[in-house]
């Protein structure tokens, strides 16, 4: 991972970790829920074989595919925000010469 942080940042480590836990993790989880509710596995037969239904099924499959990708990208983005604040917390701990235990705890949070 590239080191694109300035080393002079300041901030409250608890606030940053709180944002990771209370904002970005739940956001990712909820997007995961949304993705799970998308009707990606409906069989063509459910739409009937009445003329006209096949076109709807085809377009619905395409819409769900692009929506699934969009939501999946959103999950990755939410995860990136969460990582960003946790890495920032590590940066702040580093500049404050904080205890090693905090660093280990945040690294565990990052890997969770």
């Amino acid at each position: 991972m590239s080191s694109n942080y300035e080393r002079t940042i300041t901030g409250d480590v608890d606030d940053l970790r709180s944002d990771a836990d209370e904002v970005w993790d739940p956001a990712r989880d909820r997007l995961l829920e949304v993705r799970g509710k998308l009707p990606t596995d409906l069989p063509a037969s459910a739409f009937s074989f009445i003329p006209g239904a096949d076109g709807v099924y085809r377009e619905l499959a395409l819409s769900c595919e692009s929506l699934t990708k969009y939501v999946g990208d959103g999950e990755i983005a939410m995860h990136a925000f969460r990582d960003a604040v946790l890495w920032a917390a590590l940066d702040i701990i580093g500049t404050e010469q904080s205890v090693q235990d905090d660093i280990v705890a945040i690294r565990e949070q990052l890997n969770s």
Partner: peptide
Amino acid sequence: LVKLGPSLPGEWRKPPVGDGP
């Protein structure tokens, strides 16, 4: 359904990420 595709934004912008202390 055809109109839905273009209604989605192209991408999610991600934040810069540091690499710790």
